[in-house]
Every structure is written in structure tokens, then in C-alpha cells.
Amino acid sequence: MTEYKLVVVGAGGVGKSALTIQLIQNHFVDEYDPTIEDSYRKQVVIDGETCLLDILDTAGQEEYSAMRDQYMRTGEGFLCVFAINNTKSFEDIHHYREQIKRVKDSEDVPMVLVGNKCDLPSRTVDTKQAQDLARSYGIPFIETSAKTRQGVDDAFYTLVREIRKHKEKMSKDGKKKKKKSKTKCVIM
């Protein structure tokens, strides 16, 4: 069974824990209790493949930012979460993405942009803004509501699919490099 290491990042209060708990335990946590770091595991079937999701729910508070490099190193894919009623959390996505790329030393890291709290009427981040940002990053965008469960499975499952595509691409690139290195030079 394939294991996928997913990391949920975003500013404090955007609903990272609520999304994760909704996926794992099928219930909505409405009281806000700032996370330092929590880890969850769940076995699911995605596109006919049974897999184990190892999900790291991270601290959004700035005082825990020193811990970010460590979990970013171990993560295979990242859910970059903002709240649709919090423009600052949307603007912060850029910083999370840049930090992930720096730590992973790669421009090509599996990510999904997630606009959470889409059940709320007080939207300050337009869907088109988020779609445009995701398009500019070359990553999928999904709106979710941890409260109603809308888009929750889709967000995590899409990230797994992005990781699969990335692994497939990397193995193809690896095979191309191996083929090239088999060419021999004969000096007579």
C-alpha cells in the first residue's frame, strides 16, 4: 500500500485542523484551538488504489514558523489553505509557496490551493482571484467548507493525484537520464 505524506499549511484560523478532522473523523470542530502540530493517518481508496494518507496539520501562528522547514522537508505534497473571508490569509499563500519551493529546492512541488469556509456569506476573496492565482502557479484550486464537508475529500484526493503525477514524471525523467548515460565512448 502506497503511503502519501501530505502537509496542510496556511495562516492561523483558516480551518486547516477543521478540514483535516472532517476528512479523518467526519465531524466539524467549530471551536478554535490553535494547533502546534498534529499528525493523522487514514486509509482510503483513490482511483481504485488503496493508500495510506499521513497528514500533518501544522501551526499557522507566526511564533511556530521555525518548525516549518522541518515538516516541509518531509512532506510530499501540500494543501495551501486560505479562508475566503480573510484576504490576508490569501496573500500569505505566496509566502508559504515560496518557502516550500526553497526548502524542497524545487520549482515543481505537488500543491493544491484550497479556499476554505465557502459556506460563509462574508467572502472577501473572489473565486476568480483564487483561480487566477492557482493557474499562475500551475496547481489545482478547490473551494471547501469544513463545516458542510463540501470539497473536503476532493481537496485531499486531488493532492494525492498531483503527487502521483509528480512521481510518474520524475521516474520518466530518471529513465531518460539513465538511457543517456548508457551511451559509451570508444577510443581507438
Rank of each mutant, 00 (worst) to 15 (best):
G75W: 06
K117W: 14
E76G: 03
F82Y: 11
D69M: 03
S65M: 10
L120V: 10
G77Q: 01
V125N: 10
F78H: 04
P110S: 03
S106G: 12
F78R: 01
R73W: 07
S122I: 08
M72V: 13
V109H: 04
R123V: 12
R73G: 06
A83H: 06
Y71S: 10
E98L: 03
D126H: 08
D126I: 07
G115H: 04
C80W: 09
F82K: 02
L79Q: 00
Y71Q: 15
L113C: 11
C80K: 00
K88C: 09
Y64D: 12
Y64R: 02
Y64Q: 13
E107T: 11
R68W: 13
M111T: 03
T124K: 11
G77K: 00
F82T: 06
V103P: 01
R123H: 11
V112T: 02
V112Q: 00
Y64P: 09
Y71L: 15
C80G: 03
M72N: 10
V112Y: 03
M67H: 01
I84F: 13
D108L: 05
V114W: 00
A66M: 06
F90G: 05
P110W: 00
D126M: 07
Y71M: 15
M111D: 00
S65P: 14
N116R: 01
Y71D: 15
M67F: 03
M67R: 01
S65G: 11
D105W: 03
A66Q: 10
S122H: 10
C118G: 10
V103F: 05
C80F: 14
P121C: 09
C118N: 10
F78W: 03
Y71N: 11
R123T: 12
A83D: 15
I84G: 15
D108I: 06
D108T: 06
F78T: 01
G75T: 06
A83R: 04
Y64I: 14
G115V: 11
T124Q: 11
Y71R: 01
G77S: 03
R123W: 10
G115W: 05
D126A: 08
Y71H: 15
R68L: 12
K101I: 03
R97L: 15
V109E: 03
V109G: 03
M72G: 09
L79T: 00
N86M: 02
T124N: 11
A66C: 13
M67L: 05
E76Q: 06
A83N: 14
V112E: 00
C118Y: 08
V125Q: 10
V114I: 10
Y64V: 15
H95R: 12
K104C: 14
N116E: 07
K104W: 14
E76R: 04
V81T: 08
G115Q: 05
P121M: 13
E63M: 04
T124E: 12
V112W: 01
D105K: 07
Y96A: 05
S122K: 11
M111A: 01
K104E: 05
P121Y: 09
P110R: 03
C118W: 08
Y96G: 03
N116F: 02
D108S: 07
Y64H: 09
V125T: 11
V125W: 10
L120C: 12
C118E: 11
V103Y: 04
E107C: 13
V81F: 14
V103L: 08
Q70R: 01
R73S: 09
M72P: 08
D119L: 02
D92V: 04
D69Y: 02
T74A: 14
D108G: 07
D69T: 04
N116L: 15
V109P: 06
R73D: 08
M72K: 02
A83I: 01
M72D: 03
E98S: 06
T124S: 12
G77V: 12
L113H: 02
E76A: 08
Q70G: 02
E98H: 04
F78C: 02
T74H: 15
D69F: 00
A66V: 15
L113S: 03
M67E: 02
D105A: 08
K104Q: 13
G115F: 10
I93R: 01
N86Y: 02
D126C: 09
L79H: 02
D126G: 09
Y64G: 14
V81N: 05
C80H: 04
F78S: 01
K101F: 07
F78Q: 00
N116H: 14
D105T: 05
G75K: 03
V81M: 11
T124W: 09
T124R: 09
R102H: 07
G75C: 13
T124V: 10
K88G: 10
I84T: 14
D119I: 01
N116S: 13
P121N: 12
V114S: 01
M72R: 02
L113T: 04
K117P: 01
S65Y: 06
T74N: 10
D126Y: 08
V125C: 11
V125E: 12
E91R: 05
R73I: 06
T124A: 12
E98T: 04
K101Q: 09
A83L: 01
M111R: 01
V114D: 01
S106L: 12
I84H: 14
D69N: 04
V112G: 00
T74S: 12
E63D: 12
V109D: 01
Y71P: 11
Y71E: 15
I100W: 05
D69G: 03
F78M: 06
D105Q: 08
D108Y: 07
